[in-house]
């Protein structure tokens, strides 16, 4: 250990080198498995890279540099792919992440508040049960919900049939084609990107998956709010809802904002879930940027286009990261905190 042996006189220089030594392993590894592929990806995004070039890579003699054609093709929907429009997918992707977080956070907070009510019976039972969706891997959740929304044998249509027959006197079994129907049930809800039934099915499944985590975070934060605040507020005559908006919400905010940001980025790239539930269908209406990128690589095998697409995703994610980083200040260091 050269560093340990260095004399006191060199200690200043030693301290200047030390952090880089600590960073060395991570950057060595990342150099090979992250930065090299990243640069490679940028290079082939300007080529017509296809399956036949896989053997020789960049050394392939017939590999052509075609400039920004791949990018133009993606943006102008000139790819020979049915139902693909980059900006519609982008809009849907943002809406998907945003609409999820907008539902999960308030629901999580309200349910946490409900369970925090003093004197509520079976509180521990509820807390234990409500955590279950968090502990099941999303992949399993997606596959199970795929079967629940199965149009012929799925539990959702069966549940709706039972409800309609018992309460509304229905005679016909409910038969909703959750993953097939391409007509949006609420036309014009999101201008430019029609939301099909598959979107609502995914929202239901992801709501089941998403709110409990928010509730767990909110519960932790609720329990750290000093109780004297509420006592003082009630002495001053504040009502329940005044206390909720004046004390609970502001004090939950520092915990909920990072959780919401985390939820947003998670939903934004929720590959496993979306891919296992709808595969992006029907008619690519639930396609996210990541699932389309996967299709380009796995099914269409247009590696050049896929690379350009990956670079675009990177750009989009960078913008999202810079904005959310502003919000959470994740890169703030110890001294500045």
């Amino acid at each position: 250990m050269a560093v340990a042996k260095s004399s006191v006189g060199k200690s200043k220089r030693k301290n200047a080198v030390l952090p880089y030594l600590y960073l060395l392993p991570a950057f060595l590894i990342m150099g090979v498995i992250t930065f090299y592929p990243l640069i490679y990806q940028v290079i082939i995004s300007f080529t017509n890279f296809e399956s036949k070039h896989l053997l020789l890579g960049l050394k392939s003699p017939e590999l052509e540099f075609i400039g920004i054609k791949n990018y133009i093709d993606i943006f102008t929907a000139a790819l020979p792919v049915e139902n693909f429009n980059f900006f519609r997918v982008l809009e849907f992707n943002f809406w998907w992440a945003l609409s999820n977080v907008m539902l999960h956070v308030p629901a999580g907070v309200l349910i946490a508040v409900l369970l925090n009510t003093e004197g509520l019976w079976f509180k521990r039972l509820y807390r234990a049960a409500y955590i279950l969706p968090v502990v099941v891997p999303p992949l399993v959740v997606a596959t199970v919900w795929t079967n629940i929304f199965d149009e012929r044998y799925g539990a959702m249509n069966q549940l709706l049939t039972t409800l309609s027959m018992t309460f509304f006197g229905g005679t016909e079994p409910v038969y909703i084609r959750w993953f097939e129907d391409v007509t949006p049930p609420i036309p014009g809800f999101l201008p430019g990107a029609p939301l099909t039934l598959a979107y609502y099915a995914m929202m239901i499944a992801n709501f089941w998956l998403g709110w409990p985590f928010m509730s767990v975070v909110a519960t932790g934060a609720l329990q750290s709010i000093p109780k004297d605040l509420y006592e003082a507020a009630s002495i001053d005559g504040a009502t329940g809802s005044q206390q909720f908006w004046g004390i609970t919400v502001p004090l939950l905010r520092p915990a909920m904002i990072p959780a919401a940001v985390y939820g947003f980025t998670l939903s934004f790239n929720l590959f496993n879930f979306v891919f296992f539930m709808t595969g992006g269908g029907p008619a690519r209406s639930t396609e996210l940027l990541v699932t389309f990128a996967y299709n380009l690589v796995r099914n269409l095998r247009w590696y050049g286009v896929a690379a350009a697409f990956a670079v675009i995703i990177f750009g989009v994610a960078l913008v999202v990261f810079l904005i959310t980083n502003r919000i959470t200040r994740a890169t703030q260091n110890y001294q500045e905190a």
Partner: peptide, 21 residues
């Protein structure tokens, strides 16, 4: 920021070069 780059690049985005490598 460099360390956080892979967060911005989903696994599928790096798959082709990693495959070749």
């Amino acid at each position: 920021v460099l360390v956080f780059i892979p967060l911005l690049m989903p696994a599928v985005g790096l798959s082709t070069p990693l495959y070749l490598l």
